[in-house]
Amino acid sequence: MLDKTNPVHLSRNAVLYRMVMPDHTCPYGLKAKDLLKRTGYEVDDRHLTTREETDAFKAQHGVATTPQVFIGEDRVGGYDDLRRFLGRPVTDPKATTYRPVIVLFALTALMAMAASFAVDGNPLSLRAAEWFIAFSMVALAMLKLQNVESFATMFLNYDLLAKRWVPYSYIYPYAEGLAGVLMIAGALNWLSVPVAFFIGTVGAASVFKAVYIDRRELKCACVGGSSNVPLGFISLTENLMMIGMAIWMTVASAGLAVGHAM
């Protein structure tokens, strides 16, 4: 264990060993070098240029990975160890987070406002609200379709219809994307509205049962099968948005039809 009160550790000098080969430059080595420099360390940057040299270094110091950081005569360790040593947070790859969904909704909201401003000169129009939901549906479908097999596997953990009819877990992202595209265009409402209402209703019922009735702690497949987004309120929101959009478009179409009839 390093003693940060030791004067040698206050000298702000570090030695970094990292792989820099013709066909591979270690990204964590670059991160470690950047972090050291940003925190005021002078870096003696030493490259391991061959696999043999790297293996020999690992054997000499009894380590399994590179990069390795040394401060004074003590080994700090790899990139995550360096972050801990400097008091920086270290990301847990298994930790659940809502960040992917929050970022997606924030960007689709900005896209909708930008599109509305370009068309109407008003970023906060009713059309912007409609586009926000439709853009979100398309973006979510796109993330699911990056690896539909992985999505389907995670989706089968909680979706009520998919558990009874497995092909639905593969159909769902295509249906969501199709409904979103049609809603952006304002075309074929007779198709997009029932599709959005159906998958939104089944999805909302599935999430509500899994989270609030069965009290299960699951990951949501909403942004793809490899996500660490917890199944919960935000997952429910995705489905409620689709239901709301379908109802709104039905009401708006009915109102437009009445207006034309008068």
Score class of each variant (00 low, 15 high):
6 N>A: 14
7 P>C: 03
11 S>G: 15
12 R>E: 14
14 A>Y: 01
15 V>I: 10
17 Y>M: 04
18 R>Y: 11
19 M>F: 12
20 V>K: 04
21 M>D: 07
22 P>Q: 11
24 H>Q: 08
26 C>W: 01
27 P>R: 01
28 Y>F: 13
29 G>W: 00
30 L>S: 12
31 K>A: 13
32 A>K: 03
35 L>C: 11
36 L>R: 00
37 K>E: 15
38 R>V: 11
40 G>P: 01
41 Y>A: 04
44 D>Y: 05
46 R>D: 08
47 H>L: 15
48 L>M: 08
48 L>S: 03
48 L>D: 05
51 R>N: 14
53 E>L: 09
54 T>K: 09
56 A>D: 15
59 A>M: 12
63 V>M: 03
63 V>Y: 01
64 A>N: 12
66 T>H: 08
67 P>A: 06
68 Q>G: 04
70 F>H: 07
75 R>G: 09
76 V>W: 00
77 G>Q: 02
78 G>F: 01
86 L>C: 09
86 L>A: 08
87 G>H: 06
89 P>N: 09
90 V>Y: 02
91 T>F: 12
99 R>C: 13
100 P>K: 01
100 P>N: 02
107 L>E: 08
107 L>Q: 10
108 T>S: 01
108 T>W: 00
109 A>V: 11
112 A>P: 01
113 M>Y: 03
114 A>D: 13
119 V>Q: 13
120 D>A: 14
121 G>F: 06
124 L>S: 07
125 S>G: 06
125 S>V: 07
128 A>F: 00
131 W>Y: 08
132 F>V: 07
133 I>N: 00
134 A>M: 03
135 F>W: 01
136 S>D: 05
140 L>W: 01
141 A>K: 00
141 A>H: 01
147 N>W: 06
147 N>T: 12
147 N>Y: 08
148 V>C: 10
149 E>R: 09
151 F>D: 07
151 F>R: 02
155 F>C: 11
157 N>D: 14
158 Y>P: 02
160 L>F: 07
161 L>A: 09
164 R>A: 15
164 R>Y: 10
165 W>P: 04
166 V>G: 14
167 P>W: 05
170 Y>M: 12
171 I>T: 13
176 E>Q: 05
181 V>S: 03
184 I>Y: 00
184 I>Q: 03
186 G>F: 01
189 N>Y: 10
191 L>G: 05
193 V>A: 05
194 P>Y: 07
194 P>H: 06
195 V>T: 08
197 F>K: 04
198 F>L: 11
198 F>C: 07
202 V>T: 13
203 G>I: 02
204 A>C: 05
204 A>F: 04
204 A>Q: 02
207 V>R: 00
209 K>P: 04
210 A>M: 04
212 Y>I: 08
214 D>T: 08
215 R>P: 12
220 C>K: 08
223 V>M: 03
235 S>F: 05
241 M>P: 07
247 I>L: 11
248 W>V: 14
248 W>F: 13
249 M>D: 13
249 M>S: 14
250 T>L: 04
253 S>Y: 09
253 S>L: 12
254 A>V: 15
255 G>L: 07
256 L>E: 15
257 A>T: 12
258 V>H: 12
259 G>Q: 14
262 M>V: 15
